[in-house]
Design a protein around this nucleic acid. Structure first.
Lengths: 153, 153
DNA sequence: ACGCAAACATTGCACAATGCAAGAATGGTC
DNA sequence: GACCATTCTTGCATTGTGCAATGTTTGCGT
């Protein structure tokens, strides 16, 4: 169990490091917003807010900031003029791509370095543990980190 | 590797749930501050700030709020009148105790439920993984969660 | 003893993130 | 057409955050 805690921590640390690249351009909540748009495609404001579990008003202002930075674009829907359609600009897409690519590379490197560890009995044990520990939703998972999930020190 | 991701997620979800009890009284950063005081004992403001990796000014105001809630107490040091000594009030101590106790119980329940999983080869694999993934500092670990590390959905 | 630099806490300022409540615009229904 | 629901936005309040400046105190060197 202690070993699992250690391993979880290491895994999380790696995820946090792969995010560091983006933190000069956007904050973590802003990046999460971008990821929603990258993963789900153009969305309505209300859908983004729901996805991120934030109040729509918070979403509006988050998107204000992202639009100001040139990372998302707002367009009023013609079919339903209440809704605002949000989508990534090329710059926003690129930012997300960079982080996701980096993360994937880190993960691949790690998989390669530890391939021999993942024997069936190990993965069986982890899966059983996950079941015993209970369910956590798929979404939100890797997005839910604070800036302070870092190393140093 | 996928299994480890799952297990990590489950573990984190459990941690987040054990924090939920406190979230009606204090925010997560506030709770982290309380934990520092609980774990390290009475501290100077500057030490708390360093421990939490925040600016001292942020710490001052965080402690303002906690003092207003009656969870910490400030006393000017007599030996060095520059420093302010912070310590938990009984209410603050109790709040931390509640959460930590709950977390410990959850962990014990989980250990018990999964005891047979933790064979030597499993823990060996996890430890090796942690080493390969790189180091993350001991402190900050379980404190570094946002409120959004929840389930539902 | 004096002065000066360092240490510590705080305050001022700016900004991001957040929720609730209210409002404006639009769409759909009866 | 009246009414209600949906969608977004704005106003207001609060927390969390950092940087810069300030005030107080300490310690050191001369």
């Amino acid at each position: 169990m202690q070993a699992l805690i250690l391993a979880s921590r290491a895994f999380v640390g790696m995820t946090a490091r792969s995010l560091a690249a983006a933190e000069e351009e956007v904050t973590l909540p802003q990046f999460r917003t971008l990821v929603v748009l990258a993963v789900r495609g153009p969305q309505r404001g209300v859908d983004i807010a729901e996805e991120l579990r934030i109040n729509p008003s918070t979403g509006t202002r988050m998107l204000d900031r992202l639009a100001r930075k040139g990372l998302v674009r707002r367009t009023r829907s013609a079919s339903d003029r209440r809704v605002v359609r949000l989508r990534l600009t090329p710059a926003g897409q690129e930012l997300v791509d960079q982080v996701l690519t980096r993360r994937r590379e880190e993960l691949e490197r790690l998989v390669e370095a530890t391939a021999e560890l993942w024997r069936p009995e190990v993965t069986r044990a982890l899966t059983a543990f996950a079941e015993a520990a209970g369910e956590v939703s798929e979404r939100d998972w890797w997005l839910g980190w604070t800036e302070h999930q870092d190393d140093e020190g």
